[in-house]
Amino acid sequence: MTAPGARIQRPRAASPLPGTRRPRRRSRLVWRPTLVALAFLSPALIGLVLLRLAPAVVAFWQSLQGGGILSGGEHFVGLDNYVELFSSADFIGSLLVTLLFTVIINPVQVAIAFLLAVLYTRRAAGSGFWRSLVILPIAVPPAVSAVIWSVIYRPDGLGNAFLGMLGLPAQPFLTSPTQSLTAIMVLLSWVGVGYWMLFLIAGINDVPTELYEAASLDGASAWRQLWTITFPLVRRPLAFVLVADTVSNFLVFAPVQILTKGGPEGSTNLLMHDIFNRAYTLGDLNTAQAEVIILVLLTLAIVAVQFRLLKSEDAA
């Protein structure tokens, strides 16, 4: 407890909460911390509201407008833009490509990241060094990785050189409608897996060593220990990684824009690129905003579903 004398000498502002437990100062007790907390929070809150939430509201508002210069200025058109979107083959195609992409790339990336995390937390020669090599590509900005892989995927590039060495025929990669999406997934995984692995390594390192020692004494094999100790105990980092990975893969843009522009035949036309294309190549900003809203809602839905799944798992 502060001595009463000391409290009087000190200006109020410098010491907002002297004698915390005194009932006399009750109203101050309730309001002072709130104001102080809001002062700490306000710069970030203003930024987040203005730069993250406001654009979503603006996008929603503009998605309800239509017309443009040709038909006498913007006016309220209700859900017309959404109706137009869903009757557009391009958009439906983009939606399907994005779903296919999401369903494949996320489980694969998380599984690889988990197995690599397990591998690189075992005691082995140069484990830390090899692990760094896997982490290395996370430093490569998406646009740079796209440029590097554009050379690898060239008909006369490194990719086909390797296939040639193995005696396999040259592949078209990015110019083939059946291979382009996979080609993009490979380059994204090259960049992404090491990043997600970091989180899982952190989770694995948090598992108390005694659990493994106890299991070893009980004769549990390394494989069994992996699934009965490691896996359940890193479920939280795994959950985080799955959610974050899904969201980040939902927003893939640079490789598509740089490598394929959505083609060939729309096979890599992921939603982000379709939005960009609609807004700036086709110049239909209102419909693009409608698509932004759909993208945001889909993202939120994915996150919600994944959190729900994980919660019910916790209860079980």
Binding site: A44, L51, R52, P55, A59, L251, Q289, V292, V296, T299
Partner: peptide, 20 residues
């Protein structure tokens, strides 16, 4: 609000924000 703002991915709202 913080959680919501990071659930709304930046790239998704980049186009309306660029407009602003």
């Amino acid at each position: 609000i913080v959680i919501l703002s990071f659930l709304i991915p930046f790239d998704a709202i980049a186009i309306p924000l660029a407009d602003m």
